[in-house]
């Protein structure tokens, strides 16, 4: 069975590593990007099956990422946004721009898995 390719855009390396481990265990093929530039490069290279992105990222925020994917790349790949608590405005903007779901920090990896399964 082919694995789902997942692009994880998260600047916190520890968290990214933790989520990567969990997601790989769940059968996803995970690519990690630490900042917006890496995300762009990876998206140009290959479009993943799903994107999980932090809102706050260097060079290129999660909001900009959604805009980029939806408008410039014209892709409807599912996007899940990771946001900090109390960041409701950004979450709303993300949804307006076409995010499919959001999960707030602190993240419960099991919850993320459930959300991913629901979307995919």
């Amino acid at each position: 069975m082919e694995k789902n390719r997942l692009l994880l855009a998260e600047d916190d390396e520890l968290l990214a590593s933790l989520l990567n481990f969990r997601l790989e265990k769940e059968g996803y093929e995970v690519q990690i990007s630490k900042d917006g530039r890496e995300v762009k490069a990876q998206l140009k290279e290959q479009m993943p099956d799903i994107i999980v992105s932090d809102i706050m990222m260097p060079y290129f925020s999660g909001i900009e990422l959604i805009d980029y994917v939806r408008k410039e790349l014209n892709s409807d790949v599912p996007i899940i946004i990771i946001s900090s608590a109390g960041n409701e405005e950004n979450v709303l903007s993300a949804f307006e721009l076409g995010a499919n779901d959001f999960i707030s920090k602190p993240i419960n990896p099991s919850e993320l898995i459930v959300r991913l399964k629901r979307i995919i």
Binding site: D12, K105, P106, N108, P109, S110
Partner: peptide, 10 residues
């Protein structure tokens, strides 16, 4: 550090 970023069973 991780404690701040994860919740639940983890």
């Amino acid at each position: 550090d991780l404690r701040k970023d994860v919740s639940g069973d983890t």
